[in-house]
Amino acid sequence: MTGRWFITPGELRRQGILGMNARNGSYIAQLNARSNYPLVDDKLQTKHLALDAGIAVPELYGVIETPHQVRRIGKMLEGRNDFVIKPAHGAGGDGILVITGRMGEHYRRANGRLMDRESIQHHLSNILSGMYSLGGQPDRAMVEYRVKFDPLFDQVSFEGVPDIRTVVYRGYPIMAMVRLPTREADGKANLHQGAVGAGVDMATGETLHGVWHGRVVDQHPDTGAPISGICIPDWSTLLALAARCHDLTGLGYLGVDVVLDRDRGPLILELNARPGLAIQIANRQGLLKHIERVDARLEGMEAPEEAAARAAWVGEGFAQATG
């Protein structure tokens, strides 16, 4: 484990690692039309798009747009014991409040702490004033169904939301990872906040080793359970779901975040027009090789394939590439 403290550019290139500049300049700028950004940056729009296309998303309980609605939040939350509040334009999981239960006038957060209604209202008005949105634009707050996680990842996550991030390039899901929250990440599933990322075998849906703080780990830092070898059920369906999100948004370089709900199966949590690069560390391979394979396939094709066919091709191709 005691490698050098840096990696040479030549080595990165050889492994086909996509850098931040190349991602921004060569892929996001070329493939993601600005006009389509609101579709994914505004989680409300994403939700409506997905619903129209018949893709499952967490149920929306309500939208809060005005200070007046903030004051009357009690009414909206009446009868709900668990829910999630998130900013419609949030980025990187900031501003998401997960409520798991209620104790009289207080609400219990996912980390076990209690919160009174005033604090929730303050959080809501912070969201409305744009504290969590890109560029500080005034925002809206969404209240939605709290996902009941599939017990699949229970052993390898600490509180929070384990989700499956898939990078979809020109409609082809090319790489995926499972993001496992840790104590340090405070229930969030962002790798740079301390979550564990585990690569996923694209052919089988089986988790590979994990990465935590840039280091390779085999066990979850909080629970100690082994990370690899967890098989995600219905993997091919999940890939097809991710592939369909490309059709929804028209974005050529897209991150799809899916959660597995105990009762409702895979739900699209959010889409991301600027998915991060950490997925490459989790999978220990570069995105560029897969990008080139997809480009080569699209080169010789006249009519675009259906999402299911694209997902199937990815599964097969991956098996070949790694096998």
């Binding site: 840096f6 990165l12 690692i17 850098g19 500049n21 190349a22 390779v216 690069l277 560390i281 220990r284």
Partner: peptide
Amino acid sequence: TGYRLTELLRFRALG
């Protein structure tokens, strides 16, 4: 579109 210097650190696990 080349790599950033800090990425040489960030991706060191891959080495």
